[in-house]
Design a protein around this nucleic acid. Structure first.
Lengths: 216, 216
DNA sequence: ACCTGAACACCGTTCAAGT
DNA sequence: ACCTGAACACCGTTCAAGT
């Protein structure tokens, strides 16, 4: 039945949210649904398909950010913000999105919205698919870095001594020690990064002085 | 013993390279070393520590790309290329690097080299740590997208019909159908992305017209 | 100091069986 | 049509024991 499948997906998402992706097992999901592990198979067809379905479900969460009456800047900014929120509410999503290409209709809709925004910005057609990948790679990568621990390490300890190596202090860290002492506001930094990327997109659309687009 | 630990790490890396990260188990590693699973614990202290050590080992592979007699562009380009090669030779590395912040000395050395390159480019000090994270996030994210299947999906099938939805064709895809029909050369695309990012860095270093740096 | 073996609480998935 | 139960080949890790 259709209802059963939704119920199973709901349970899997709930477990991933509460206990992490590694706690999602056929057995734990079945327990939550109130059924035997084997009862899941006819409905979702195995662990791998379950994870695919979980990614598909999340793509739908980005759709509200796809609106047509916006400037390309608003469109890209809105999508990026929505994606970052998704990685915060469902940290496991960023992980899965990287290793399970989502071909669900809703995911394709999101890609298309980015295409449209880049075209509206005036980016030459041959550059659009590449910049879409660059944009989404950065947004997902940033979300994954926040969700996972990648950003936590470098600057967490004020005046950390990690750059004080046996052979002497590392020059870059030594020079920046004042700026490395406090943990940044990641949301703020994400916004600054997006502004820079939008500037990059605009430069592609209206090149001034730099290397010209392929056609010229 | 020290030798035993290296032997264990070698075995784990070999298994990950040949069979994938999910094939790395205490039991499979122990088998390869010719020992009982329990014999590993005194030397590497558990599965999680094993994975951390594997990431640490890979950081060393980036060190050859850290040379001081280069322009900042050569430095960043060389590091990015080395990182991409690492994700190709050891696809599991990108996955682990995102979820296990590497604080190994060699990883800090790489971060420091990026700091130095950005400073040499003339990037204002408060922007350097942010741009380092943006740069490394993009490079790792691109490697992970290549290693995992994220890039495979969107454009793999020529004139794919995924954008032909029930309610009609998606306008962005329809408009770009000529450019979406062939799979790009990912190395080439990566180079183009890097060039754009270096342009972004230069714009931060020598702002002309856009929003000025914080100090002004 | 280093390793083994049995055991415990987990996995995903198969297959035959029940209603 | 939908679910159960036993079984198989796996996990990481603990603990007591061997040399």
């Amino acid at each position: 039945m259709r209802d059963r499948k939704q119920e199973i997906l709901d349970a899997a998402v709930a477990i991933a949210d509460e206990l992490g992706l590694e706690a999602v097992s056929m057995r734990s999901v079945a327990d939550r649904v109130g059924v035997t592990p084997m009862a899941l198979y006819p409905h979702i067809g195995g662990k791998s398909a379950l994870l695919d379905a979980m990614v598909g479900r999340m793509g739908t969460g980005l759709l509200p950010a796809v609106a047509t009456d916006q400037t390309w800047r608003e469109q890209l900014y809105g999508l990026a913000r929505a994606a970052l929120q998704l990685t915060q509410r469902h940290p496991w999503w960023a992980t899965l999105a990287f290793e399970r290409p989502s071909v669900a209709p809703d995911a394709v809709r999101v890609t298309d919205a980015i295409y449209q925004a880049l075209l509206a910005a005036g980016v030459p057609e041959p550059d659009v698919p590449r910049l879409e990948r660059m944009f989404s790679t950065f947004v997902l990568g940033y979300g994954l870095s926040m969700a996972g621990g990648r950003f936590k390490a470098g600057d967490a300890d004020p005046r950390g001594t990690r750059w004080q190596l046996p052979e002497g202090p590392l020059p870059g860290h030594a020079h920046l020690v004042g700026w490395l002492s406090k943990t940044p506001d990641w949301e703020e930094e994400f916004t600054a990064d997006l502004a820079d990327i939008e500037r990059l997109i605009e430069a592609k659309a209206h090149p001034t002085g730099g290397s010209p687009p392929r056609g010229e």
